[in-house]
């Protein structure tokens, strides 16, 4: 296994190099400026030199003493020599401390602000407003909530038939007859995975530019995400079914469409229904969030009141959202339980 040991050694060195460069950048550009008023210039020669120097040091250290985090990571174990082990341990702790320190600085964690009297006053205002909601906007809020619930409903209704159709060519056991079918299966799965990794909020941004801000943009965003998620869940359910009926229906001389309809569909309808109801439930929550970025409904209303610093109104909306989401959650759980 000469080849694989060479590649894994290269891989280990690469990890060491990245670690060295990151450590340098953390120390030089984030940690050091905390002391004595030094402000780093824009990224320049000195950074490149420093980063490559520390990377080089770690690689050399790793190759001369076996004290390499990269090797320990790639091999999944500590180096055999005690000197190597000691170096790996120290390097490991050092990188951990520097990483956490850097993270603390970058995320601007500040206990002082959290507990400052000014800050606590602000928190008091918000929580106070939550318990003293402005009931006069309830009709407006309910109207917006209805928009959100229907956005989610329409997105689910539009997405379900498409997800249903896509799920069959996305199931391995349906698409195993030839190399061409397997290629179709693989590409559909890849597209679904990519569509699913893009959050609905991002789709909402795209569609609010495309069709304008409002519930339609929110619905389209949810449709894309729902198709991708449901098609994956559906197809995994199809892959999970009992193959016996498929064989039996094929043995009668049925064609593929008949086989899907008579052997596969009866086995998956109930789980499909269950997934679908749960997805509507999820979509109502997502539709709220999508409203923040221009998807209409109660989310949009919430950002408007928040922008005007009208916290009692915000409080009203938060209460209504929580209630509706909770009711739908209980209802969908009940329905899914009844379907079993």
């Amino acid at each position: 296994m000469k080849h694989s040991s060479t590649t894994s050694l290269l891989f280990a060195s690469l990890i060491d190099a990245v670690l060295g460069a990151t450590l340098w950048a953390s120390l030089w550009r984030v940690v050091l400026p905390q002391f004595g008023g030094y402000t780093p210039e824009t990224f320049g020669t000195i950074d490149v030199l420093g980063m490559s120097m520390l990377a080089g040091v770690l690689i050399v250290l790793g190759n001369t003493t076996e004290g390499s985090l990269g090797r320990a990571f790639v091999s999944g174990g500590m180096p055999p020599s005690s000197r190597g082990r000691s170096i790996v341990r120290h390097l490991g702790w050092l990188s951990f401390v520097i990483t956490i320190w850097t993270g603390w600085i970058i995320t601007k964690i500040s206990p002082i602000e959290f507990f400052s009297s000014e800050g606590l006053q602000g928190a008091g205002r918000i929580f106070g407003a939550l318990v003293r909601p402005n009931m006069s906007i309830v009709p407006q809020a309910l109207e917006a909530m209805v928009v959100t619930v229907f956005t989610a409903l329409m997105a689910t209704v539009v997405a379900v038939p498409l997800a249903f159709l896509i799920s069959f060519p996305a199931a391995r056991n349906v698409m195993s007859a030839s190399a061409g079918e397997r290629a179709v299966y693989t590409s559909i799965r890849a597209v679904l995975n990519i569509a699913r990794s893009m959050e609905p909020v991002i789709w909402a941004v795209i569609f609010s530019v495309w069709v304008g801000i409002g519930p339609f943009a929110g619905m389209l965003a949810l449709v894309v995400h729902t198709i991708a998620s449901l098609a994956k869940q559906y197809s995994e359910q199809i892959e999970d079914i009992n193959d016996g009926p498929i064989e039996a229906i094929a043995a009668t001389g049925a064609n593929r469409l008949q086989n899907i309809w008579f052997a596969i569909v009866p086995q998956v309808v109930i789980p499909f229904l269950s997934f679908t109801i749960y997805r509507w439930d999820i979509n109502v929550r997502m539709a709220t969030i999508i409203g923040f970025v221009g998807g209409g409904g109660i989310g949009t209303l919430l950002t408007q009141y928040q922008g005007l610093a009208k916290f009692q109104e915000v409080g009203t909306l938060v209460i209504i959202i929580t209630l509706v989401v909770w009711i739908l959650d209980v209802a969908s759980a009940r329905i899914r339980e009844a379907l079993k």
């Binding site: 016996g244 064989e247 039996a248 229906i249 043995a251 001389g253 008579f262 052997a263 086995q267």
Partner: peptide, 16 residues
């Protein structure tokens, strides 16, 4: 296939 019938150990009916 349609000219040959087949029965199976696990019956393979459509249960629902």
């Amino acid at each position: 296939r349609s000219r040959i019938g087949m029965i199976f150990q696990h019956f393979n009916l459509i249960d629902r």
